[in-house]
Computed example of a mutant assay.
Amino acid sequence: MKIVFDFGGVLFRWHPPSFLARVWPHRVPDETVGAEVAQTFFQSYTGDWGAFDQGLADAATTADRITARTGWPRAEIVTVMDAVPQELQLIEGTAALIQDLKAQGHTLHFLSNMPEPYADHLETHHPLGEWFESGIFSGHVKQSKPHTPIFELAAQQFGAKPQELVFLDDHPANIEAATALGWQAVLFTTPEAAREALQARGLLAAA
């Protein structure tokens, strides 16, 4: 069995409401407002940000488009975009889970919606090649979840039939897309819950 990890919100911290409250306190006084502003800024990872995710627009173009769409000052948009790498802190519980899965002989891959600049940052600052046999960043392949082509490309690259893949992701739409194509999938909430789910499937021995 091959186990496939999403990154944002699974292996690396990504919580837009609290992120925006930290980097944009003059616009986002708390996480409740942060959730509302995140919908406008990131458009549920469609639109301007979706094109950035897919490598169809660079950071400067994305900043221009968000500015034109929202009326927010471009410099403030760039501040948020430049702060994203710092937001992507390693989630230690997931890192420990990865090490345990590898120790028990599983092959690991990743499948992440990630704009190219942030993908490059993660590749530079974390030993992805040690943790994963291979992986796909949306920005590198010009496709993104939850669309079918990226899942088909992933199965091909990972050398597995869909039913041989177990996918951990924190977005229900991505889980639904994967299972519709025959993948096994676990909706990620916390490292502890993911560990329990993998143990229940017989993929990880209990500690």
Rank of each mutant, 00 (worst) to 15 (best):
L181D: 07
A60I: 04
T70L: 08
Q199I: 15
W131N: 06
L108H: 04
R65A: 12
T40G: 10
A57V: 13
V33A: 14
T46H: 12
F188Y: 15
E133I: 09
D30Y: 11
V78A: 03
N174F: 10
Q86S: 13
A205R: 14
E133K: 13
H106P: 03
H147E: 14
L187R: 04
T124C: 11
F7V: 02
T124Q: 15
L187Y: 00
T46D: 15
A207S: 13
M1K: 06
L122T: 07
V84I: 15
G9K: 06
T40Q: 11
D58E: 10
K142I: 07
T124Y: 09
V141K: 01
A96C: 08
G55S: 13
E36M: 12
E133L: 12
W24S: 10
W49Y: 15
E87P: 06
T94N: 11
T79K: 03
L88H: 03
Q143M: 15
G71Y: 04
A200F: 01
G55D: 12
L168Y: 05
A197R: 05
L165S: 03
P162C: 07
A180P: 01
K142G: 09
P117S: 11
T32G: 13
H106M: 09
L90S: 07
P17F: 05
T62E: 01
T189E: 14
V141T: 04
E164W: 03
Q104H: 06
F52L: 10
K142V: 12
F52R: 02
V28R: 06
V166W: 15
F110A: 00
I3P: 01
L108D: 02
Q156D: 14
R74V: 08
I150G: 00
L198R: 08
P172E: 08
A193S: 11
H147Y: 13
G55Q: 08
H126P: 08
Q43R: 12
A207D: 15
P85K: 10
A185W: 04
Q157V: 04
V141D: 00
E87C: 06
G93P: 02
F158S: 05
S44H: 14
W24V: 03
T79I: 00
V4M: 02
F137Y: 14
T190Q: 02
T70K: 02
L204S: 06
Y118V: 15
G135N: 00
I91G: 09
Q156Y: 09
T189L: 07
T61A: 13
V166L: 08
A59S: 13
A96E: 14
Y45G: 00
A180I: 03
H125K: 12
A197D: 09
I150F: 01
R13W: 06
